[in-house]
Amino acid sequence: MFDVAGIVVALAVLLVIYRVIKGPRICDRVLAVNAIGTKTVVLLALIGFMYERPQFLDIALVYALINFIATIAFLKYREMGRLD
């Protein structure tokens, strides 16, 4: 069951990739990459249960924490035109 769920989530990532590539504006791309990060967290949790090592959940949590660093950097660049 976890295998099927993993495949479904991976297919969902494929759908989001379409928005990353097509996305008419840069904001669409940022949101799509953020969504991919969220799906990555779900995939990691699923892989943890697939391998019967639920401690992967902690790793998934840390991924969720570092997921939005790039988004914050992008927003700062967008608003101020520079990062420092």
Partner: peptide, 16 residues
């Protein structure tokens, strides 16, 4: 900028 974002997504999938 878009290319950098796509590479970030690529890295996330690579991590999986």
């Amino acid at each position: 900028l878009s290319a950098a974002l796509v590479l970030g997504a690529c890295s996330l999938i690579m991590a999986v």
